[in-house]
């Protein structure tokens, strides 16, 4: 479903973000990418979202070369990928409800579908009573739950979560991980980067370990080993 083919990203000879990375991700997998800061985790996700271009190699999403897609069609591809970031990246001028509805509006969904789906997903992330709050009126954990709701609202094939718990306390961290697990159970592929050892160890799912831009481990039922 997702295939990295000898992908390198070299900013300058002294700054090599990724080197000859190759791996494949099957549908419905829950893959964690671990590694120290600067090991290239975020760059990998940016390449998949076509936020950055690889220096060499190809990234395929459902047999489409991501970097062969023109700017004008890129948003069509991105609608199939839900994204969650460490810094939430909500639209500050929109309420929780509107942030989630925005993703549906952008995808051209009908108003009646939006009115039906948004409350449902708000219920899933347990934020029904906060739906008309603006992001700065929400706690970090609540903001991240809005971000996840926005990521899953269009029923994407993949969820990409870049350090989704990096800014959260332990309680909120587990809430987010549980939501991601639930989403994965419904059949969505999840790719998550993290530093958090206890999360990885408790998940018991596939772990890809990066070190200085190189892939050093790829374990089926991995643990956090650095």
């Amino acid at each position: 479903m997702i295939y990295f083919d000898k992908v390198s990203k070299i900013y300058s000879p002294t700054s090599i973000a990724l080197e000859e990375i190759s791996f494949a991700i099957e549908p419905n997998e829950f893959v964690s990418i671990v590694g120290q800061s600067g090991s290239g985790k975020t760059t990998m996700l940016k390449l998949l979202l076509a936020e950055e271009k690889p220096t060499s190699g190809h990234v395929f999403f459902e047999s489409i070369d991501v970097h062969g897609v023109g700017r004008k069609e890129l948003h069509m591809l991105r609608r199939k990928i839900g994204t969650v970031f460490e810094d939430f990246r909500l639209l500050p001028n929109k309420t929780a409800y509107e942030n989630i509805a925005f993703a549906m509006e952008a995808a051209g969904k009908m108003p009646e579908d939006i009115e039906k789906d948004v409350p449902q997903v708000l219920e899933l992330v347990n934020l029904v009573d906060k739906s008309w709050h603006f992001p700065d009126e929400l706690s970090r954990g609540e903001r991240q739950r809005v971000a996840i709701a926005r990521a899953i609202i269009n029923q994407p094939d993949v969820i990409i979560a870049d350090e989704p718990t990096g800014n959260l306390d332990p309680l909120n961290t587990w809430e987010i991980i549980n939501i991601l697990k639930k989403v994965n159970e419904f059949g969505t592929t999840v790719i998550m980067t993290t530093h958090n050892k206890s999360i990885i160890d408790s998940l018991g799912r596939r772990v890809i370990t990066l070190e200085k831009g190189k892939m050093v481990r790829d374990d089926k039922e991995g643990r956090y080993v650095i």
């Binding site: 004008k72 948003h75 991105r78 994204t83 639209l91 500050p92 925005f102 993703a103 269009n154």
Partner: peptide
């Protein structure tokens, strides 16, 4: 930044 977020969420230009 919002403009970038909108693009990443799948909004067309």
């Amino acid at each position: 930044e919002e403009i970038g977020v909108m693009r990443l969420v799948g909004a067309s230009d």
